[in-house]
């Protein structure tokens, strides 16, 4: 138990070890983790959402969109990072690339399924009212697909936080994983303190995205939204087997 008490003290001292000055603080590592997570997610959403939504809108490419999610699950993130760093180096850009590769598939798969599964009668009716394809997508399909689309984004965000911390083992130093991977300087209680921060950070991101999802969901649909959880990737599997 004393380990956890020391871990809390370590957090309150902002990551300093008594009698062993470090130039870097816990805040620095936490902000580093947050920064790379936000960057990686911004790029991944910018790539994944348009692709997934458009494929879903056209009801095309289901094989690719769904199997992308299945292949993705089998990839050990540590190996992707390590192989990436082995051949590209381990700067911010290279780690970002590996993170984007890992974050895009769940975003595409969920965006695809979300839009693809919108009741065809609804989109047909919208078309019958004279809406263009773009209007059907943005005014009918997208609002209805919000829970699934956001579930993909949330899954990807959790995965990115978790992988960012693992990147320390591949040599990327600016994340909380740097503390966890360095028992020699930080001792077990420092590792625990950093682990607690990682968990809190992940939860904060999850809660933040849940609020974004709520704000994006049209008001009448908000009651049903409570059932949507960050693992809605289950849906294609449930249907496709």
């Amino acid at each position: 138990m004393h380990n956890f008490v020391d871990a809390i003290r370590f957090i309150l001292r902002n990551g300093q070890i008594p009698g062993q000055p470090h130039f870097t603080t816990l805040t620095y590592y936490a902000l580093g983790t947050l920064k790379i997570t936000v960057l990686a997610m911004a790029i991944s959403v910018a790539i994944g959402l348009p692709v997934g939504l458009w494929l879903g809108h056209l009801h095309r490419g289901s094989f690719v969109a769904i199997n992308l999610g299945n292949v993705w699950r089998a990839l050990p993130s540590l190996v992707v990072l390590a192989i990436g760093s082995a051949f590209l180096g381990i700067g911010l850009r290279e780690v970002l690339l590996a993170l984007v590769v890992l974050a895009v598939p769940p975003i595409i798969t969920n965006a695809y399924v979300g839009v693809d599964e919108v009741d065809r009668d609804l989109s047909d009716a919208a078309r019958g009212m004279g809406m263009t394809g773009w209007q059907v997508l943005t005014r009918v399909e997208l609002p209805l697909a919000v829970p699934l689309v956001m579930a993909g984004v949330r899954t990807a965000a959790l995965f990115v936080v978790s992988t960012t911390t693992l990147a320390a083992y591949a040599g990327f130093g600016d994340s909380l994983g740097e503390i966890v991977s360095n028992e020699a300087s930080y001792h077990l209680y420092g590792i625990l303190g950093a682990a607690i921060c990682i968990a809190l950070l992940a939860m904060a991101i999850e809660v933040g995205l849940a609020l974004v999802q709520r704000a994006l969901t049209p008001r009448p649909l908000r009651r049903a939204e409570r059932l949507a959880r960050p693992d809605e990737l289950l849906v294609p599997q449930l249907e496709g087997v």
Binding site: L166, L188, L192, A195, I196, A202, M203, P230
Partner: peptide, 18 residues
């Protein structure tokens, strides 16, 4: 279970050690 699922793997493994 969602709470457990949210904890990044590195953190969960380390938090269980003590």
């Amino acid at each position: 279970t969602s709470f457990l699922y949210t904890i990044p793997s590195l953190a969960l493994f380390e938090l269980l050690i003590p």
